[in-house]
Amino acid sequence: MAVIDDVKQVLGETLQLGARADGFSADTPLFGAIAEFDSMAVVTVVTALEERFDIFVEDDEIEAEVFATVGSLADFVSQKLKA
């Protein structure tokens, strides 16, 4: 499964988006664009991504650019997986 599909699944589950997440593409804006994506949701998503991909996210990596779009978040995870 491509990383972006896993990321969409995590977003759908943690933000309770249901079928909306299936319609996400790399360009779909996240933070500031989706009402459910508050700071608690950011933390939930980060924790879920850490568990799903067995990665560790540093606090200073939690920045707006990472959460701008579905694609930027998937890129971030891909970078982490290569590291």
Binding site: S39, V43, T47, D59, I62, E63
Partner: peptide, 21 residues
């Protein structure tokens, strides 16, 4: 650590930067 991240994430939303450390 996860709880402190709430503040880190809120700072991110405000365009600021804080770290858990």
């Amino acid at each position: 650590t996860q709880f402190l991240r709430l503040r880190v994430a809120a700072a991110m939303a405000a365009g600021e930067k804080e770290s858990g450390q």
